[in-house]
């Protein structure tokens, strides 16, 4: 049985269908990628899984059980999310300490002090960052705080919505390494959404390509690395990710 199973998911925003019949499954401990361009519905799939977007038709199963709407409180201890823009995902008036203690307070944890210190340690931020406000942090540090917040409830599944696309290349590498290490240490399951094929190829064992709210094709990492795509759209994406190629030879 798959850990997460999405069957014929449809998400409507008013009359507009953002996701039109998407199905996939993710195994325990696996890292699964969703690739697409803006408006492909890739982020909406993620938001539907965690209940931020409505499930208009179809079903989402976690551990074989259909998820209820609104989600049961226990759901949030098993599934957490990291957002794209580290500048928008932290409350501007809350210190790192408050950001991390809030989920612990909601779920009634006792040993908050130790957990906060540990969480900061795990994402490579020392004690010195604990009482800073977001505006005192760089983009990469903010994203580390966001990852610490997602992990502090010790979830099994992490939903990653373009976690590095707002970061500089060198910071991206650091955050990707961090995510990679945490997954290895804790046996986490990832669903990673990105527009960047290289990031998905680096992070995920399997991936699907989406366009206009539908699945174009599903690939394994090996097939992606061999450029063994059957659909023309996937091939376009692969070509575009290699950079610019002039039409004619340069003079």
């Amino acid at each position: 049985m798959s850990l997460i199973q999405v069957n014929d998911l449809v998400v409507m925003f008013g009359p507009v269908a953002a996701v039109r019949g998407v199905s996939f499954h993710v195994e325990e401990g696996e890292s699964y990628g969703i690739v697409g361009e803006s408006g492909s519905g890739k982020s909406t799939v993620l938001r539907a899984i965690c209940g931020l977007a409505p499930t208009s038709a179809g079903e989402i199963r976690l551990d074989g059980k259909v998820l209820s709407a609104p989600r049961h409180p226990d759901f949030y201890r098993r599934v957490q999310m990291v957002f794209q823009d580290p500048y928008a995902s932290l409350h501007p008036r809350h210190t790192v300490d408050r950001v991390l203690s809030e989920p612990l307070a909601i779920h009634g944890f006792k040993d908050r002090e130790a957990r906060i210190e540990q969480a900061l340690e795990d994402v490579g931020l020392g004690h010195g960052f604990r009482f800073r406000y977001p505006h005192q942090l760089s983009g990469g540090q903010r994203q580390r705080v966001a990852i610490a917040r997602a992990l502090i409830l010790e979830p099994r599944v992490l939903l990653l919505d373009e976690p590095t696309s707002a970061l500089d290349a060198s910071i991206q590498a650091e955050v990707l390494n961090l995510l990679d290490r945490l997954r290895g240490e804790r046996g986490l399951t990832y669903i990673l959404v990105s527009h960047d094929l290289a990031v998905v190829a680096h992070m995920c064992e399997r991936l699907m390509v989406m366009q206009h709210g539908q699945v174009v094709e599903e690939l394994t990492r090996a097939r992606l690395q061999a450029h063994d795509a059957t659909e023309p759209y996937t091939r376009d994406l692969l070509l575009a990710s290699e950079g610019y190629r002039p039409l004619t030879a340069r003079a």
Partner: peptide, 10 residues
């Protein structure tokens, strides 16, 4: 530090 589709440096 850029990941590539073909490479698998980890």
């Amino acid at each position: 530090c850029l990941p590539t589709i073909e490479g698998d440096v980890r």
